Simulated scan of single mutants.
Amino acid sequence: MAEISQGGGGGSKDGKVRVKKSSTKIDMTPMVDLAFLLLTFFILTTTLNKPQTMELTMPEKEKEGDKPPEVNEKKVVTLILGPQDKIYWYVGITDPKVELTNFSKDGIRKILTSKDKEIPGMIILIKPGKESKYKNLVDILDEMTITSMKRFALVKITTADEDLVKESNL
């Protein structure tokens, strides 16, 4: 048992005889038991940080002979992730006019919400460039979630897209 003993009073130097105080003993066992029970309770009932994941639905692999689905080109918005946190974007497929924006709320978020109102059934093609960072891809996927875009796809960047970015001089 754990105890704390304190010495009792004895005689004094002046020669008077006093009654000796009995020493007090405090049993610490119940307090230690309670501390460990509380510690065990809090450890077992605490939830640890759950990893935050974003659900991304990927299409099935194409089989030989399958045609890609046909899409109205006026409903396609292409986002090309460039170097230094830049986003090159254009509407349509043929004869695109490339514009430049960034990841701010007045940048890509404003463009996505305005184009969503203008173009019903809009499809967004996200094309990460060779010089873009992984962080940019995560940021654009976050923007898709924030702006509630339902139809978007991750697509490999083509040489035509790279040429468009070089020719845009933005």
Score class of each variant (00 low, 15 high):
residue 57 T to Q: 14
residue 58 M to T: 13
residue 59 P to N: 07
residue 59 P to A: 11
residue 60 E to F: 02
residue 62 E to L: 14
residue 63 K to L: 15
residue 63 K to I: 08
residue 63 K to W: 07
residue 64 E to N: 03
residue 65 G to K: 10
residue 66 D to V: 13
residue 66 D to G: 06
residue 66 D to P: 03
residue 67 K to Q: 13
residue 68 P to N: 11
residue 69 P to F: 03
residue 70 E to W: 02
residue 71 V to R: 13
residue 72 N to G: 03
residue 73 E to N: 12
residue 74 K to D: 15
residue 74 K to Q: 15
residue 74 K to R: 14
residue 77 V to T: 11
residue 78 T to M: 06
residue 78 T to D: 05
residue 79 L to E: 08
residue 81 L to Q: 04
residue 81 L to F: 04
residue 83 P to H: 01
residue 83 P to Y: 00
residue 85 D to T: 00
residue 86 K to A: 07
residue 86 K to W: 01
residue 86 K to E: 07
residue 87 I to M: 07
residue 87 I to L: 10
residue 88 Y to M: 05
residue 89 W to I: 10
residue 89 W to T: 12
residue 91 V to G: 02
residue 91 V to W: 01
residue 92 G to M: 10
residue 92 G to I: 10
residue 94 T to R: 15
residue 94 T to A: 14
residue 97 K to N: 12
residue 100 L to C: 07
residue 100 L to W: 03
residue 101 T to N: 10
residue 103 F to D: 00
residue 103 F to M: 00
residue 104 S to D: 02
residue 104 S to E: 01
residue 107 G to T: 04
residue 109 R to G: 09
residue 109 R to H: 08
residue 111 I to Q: 05
residue 111 I to C: 06
residue 111 I to Y: 05
residue 112 L to D: 12
residue 113 T to P: 10
residue 113 T to E: 15
residue 113 T to N: 14
residue 113 T to K: 15
residue 113 T to I: 15
residue 113 T to L: 15
residue 115 K to P: 04
residue 115 K to H: 08
residue 120 P to R: 03
residue 120 P to H: 01
residue 120 P to F: 01
residue 121 G to N: 06
residue 121 G to C: 01
residue 122 M to P: 09
residue 124 I to S: 11
residue 125 L to D: 12
residue 125 L to Y: 14
residue 126 I to H: 12
residue 127 K to F: 02
residue 128 P to S: 07
residue 128 P to C: 08
residue 129 G to Q: 03
residue 129 G to I: 05
residue 130 K to W: 06
residue 130 K to L: 11
residue 130 K to Y: 06
residue 132 S to P: 04
residue 132 S to F: 03
residue 132 S to G: 01
residue 134 Y to R: 14
residue 134 Y to M: 13
residue 136 N to Q: 15
residue 136 N to S: 11
residue 136 N to I: 00
residue 137 L to N: 07
residue 137 L to T: 13
residue 141 L to H: 05
